[in-house]
Simulated assay, not measured.
Amino acid sequence: MKLNEEVIRVGQSASDWEEAVKQCGQLLIENGNVEARYVNAMVNTVHTLGPYIVIAPGVALPHARPEDGVLQQGICVCVLQKPVSFSPDKEAIVFIGLAAQNKVMHLNLLKAVAEVVGDSEKLAQLKKARTVREVQQLFEKGSG
């Protein structure tokens, strides 16, 4: 999966998970993937359902439903300087925002993410990424 540099941020600082999710959502807004209300829905989903979006150690996958304001499918990646905590046993340093227009697209995006996050070596590199290019290369390799 090819990611444009516009949807990647590295070295971000966030005071808490909510701020990190909002930064992630802002990238999706700026890239034309979602309406502003989608970002609020991403935050509310965690408040309602808990930190289920932490899908791997150190990785969160904030998203909401298509009807919450998805304009076109896409993902964004934010790598924080320091992890933020969702709960005592769940924290994340990498936030991968997801915008899908339907279930099929949702699964395709998840598959692309899983190819990176599911590989312990790539995951370690992603958490330590310091440049946009490093993040791009990890996702490009994943979609061989």
Rank of each mutant, 00 (worst) to 15 (best):
K2N: 14
N4R: 12
N4H: 13
N4E: 15
I8R: 04
R9P: 00
R9H: 14
R9D: 01
G11F: 11
G11Y: 07
Q12L: 14
Q12K: 13
A14V: 10
A14H: 09
S15E: 07
S15Q: 13
S15D: 11
W17S: 00
E18S: 00
E19V: 04
E19R: 09
E19T: 13
K22W: 02
K22F: 00
C24P: 00
G25Q: 00
I29A: 08
N31S: 15
V34Y: 05
V34R: 00
V34N: 04
E35Y: 03
A36S: 11
A36L: 07
R37S: 15
Y38C: 05
V39F: 05
V39M: 06
A41Q: 13
A41N: 04
M42K: 11
V43S: 01
N44T: 05
N44C: 03
T45F: 11
T45H: 14
V46F: 10
H47Q: 13
L49I: 12
L49P: 12
L49V: 08
L49R: 12
L49M: 15
G50V: 03
Y52V: 09
Y52R: 14
Y52F: 14
Y52E: 12
I53E: 05
I53D: 05
V54F: 13
V54S: 01
V54T: 06
I55S: 10
I55N: 08
P57H: 07
G58F: 12
V59E: 10
L61W: 10
P62H: 07
P62T: 08
H63C: 06
A64I: 02
A64H: 07
A64M: 08
R65K: 12
D68Q: 14
G69L: 10
G69H: 06
V70H: 09
L71K: 10
L71M: 11
Q72E: 15
Q72H: 13
Q73S: 10
Q73N: 04
G74Q: 02
G74W: 01
I75T: 06
I75P: 05
C76G: 11
C76A: 15
C76H: 12
V77S: 02
C78L: 11
C78V: 13
C78M: 08
V79A: 04
L80C: 08
L80G: 02
Q81K: 15
Q81A: 08
Q81G: 02
K82Y: 05
V84C: 08
S85A: 15
S85I: 01
F86P: 02
D89K: 10
D89G: 02
D89T: 04
K90C: 00
A92Y: 06
A92I: 01
V94S: 09
F95H: 06
F95G: 00
I96W: 06
I96F: 09
G97V: 05
L98I: 03
L98F: 10
A99R: 03
V104Q: 13
V104C: 11
M105C: 13
H106Q: 12
H106E: 03
L107K: 07
L109V: 03
L110M: 14
A112N: 15
E115K: 08
V117T: 12
G118E: 00
G118C: 01
D119G: 07
D119F: 12
S120D: 14
S120I: 01
E121K: 13
L123P: 02
A124D: 11
Q125H: 09
L126K: 01
L126D: 03
L126M: 09
K127L: 06
K127V: 01
K128S: 15
T131Y: 08
V135R: 01
V135N: 03
Q136D: 00
Q137A: 11
G142V: 06
